[in-house]
Design a protein around this nucleic acid. Structure first.
Lengths: 195, 195
DNA sequence: CCTACCGATCGGTAGG
DNA sequence: CCTACCGATCGGTAGG
């Protein structure tokens, strides 16, 4: 008996799906491709999962949990709003870069969820974005930040954070933290040389 | 005879495809959906186009032309690098927001191009990004900008610009310019209150 | 632009 | 986890 529990077949299928969905997209990836990559017959997948969409659902909502868990302790800390925002950016970006495959799926293919999961997903995402906009609002109120349009700022920040996986070739280790800090520096300071 | 030339059937098909591809993605949109939306039989599409991918190709490379044309005159102007960068951001963002459907396809579905178009597309995109990184390099050399990692900065900027279409509900007119300027302000100045 | 149709492939089920 | 198979749908062609 191994000390470390073997990954369940269900989880192995999910991880392979993350890889294939990332490469070709959810719609263009067939259950036959997935079964082939697992080395089993297509029908055998259905001993472990109920449907193709069940896999997509697990990926999307699994990532949502990962993101919430990453920023939750930071939100409840009592640092300055600038420090909080920076930490949240680093935390979010770490999740993105540590789960590159799943993030791509989360980010591209949530559209293919059917109701009611689709509405749940949108609600969840909105709540998550509000965690960031709350910190920005407070930072403005307390004189730390100068932001014209907070919604705009939040959306732009998420665009930047969520696309890192597409171009950042992660050398493992703490490089991920660097990406988050670079992003935070850019957002906080801009690129204009200070006089 | 109308004074304004009627859009060719081919262009009508392409515009309908932009809409449907945006909503469901390229792979999940069938030629039958497209034909249905046009009010004709699926087989009739092939009187005007050669294949599904031909449509994708036209959309992706058509948008590439639009982007290049938008920034080309700015690159050859002799403003400061900061002014150039701002104008290029506004110009690019205007294209994005004026062709929302096509931009979504351009941005999500280029992956489904097959070779050699796929390689051409990547080369073209790289050349386009280099126009922005050139301005940043010069700005750093001339003391206008403080940028640690220019590649990182370019990628982040593109992430932000190319996602605007997903969340910005364009009220028509010049609102598009505002989006570009907001983006430029954020990138140039950051959000930290200056002392 | 239509009718009629092709072979291939899709997600999924029955039964073991 | 497999064999055997379902009905539906796919992109596309022939011929008019």
């Amino acid at each position: 008996m191994p000390v470390v529990a073997k990954k369940s077949r269900k989880i192995q299928i999910r991880e392979m799906a993350e890889k294939l969905f990332q490469e070709n997209g959810y719609s263009a990836t067939s259950m036959r491709h997935l079964a082939g990559a697992m080395g089993i017959e297509p029908a055998s997948l259905y001993s472990h999962i109920k449907s193709k969409e069940e896999i997509l659902h697990a990926i999307c909502f699994g990532m949502a949990d990962a993101f919430f868990n990453a920023i939750e302790p930071i939100m409840r800390s009592d640092h300055s709003n600038a420090a909080k925002l920076r930490s949240m950016i680093v935390a979010h970006t770490n999740v993105v870069l540590k789960k590159v495959h799943a993030t791509t799926v989360f980010f591209h293919d949530w559209r293919h969820l059917s109701e009611p999961a689709l509405s749940d997903f949108k609600k969840m995402r909105k709540a998550y974005e509000q965690a960031f906009s709350k910190v920005m609002h407070r930072g403005v109120a307390e004189g730390e930040f100068a932001i014209d349009d907070i919604d705009f700022c939040v959306k732009t920040l998420f665009s930047a954070m969520n696309m890192t996986h597409e171009w950042y070739k992660a050398t493992p280790a703490l490089q991920g933290e660097e990406v988050g800090h670079n992003l935070a520096n850019l957002l906080l300071n801009g690129i204009l040389q200070k006089p």
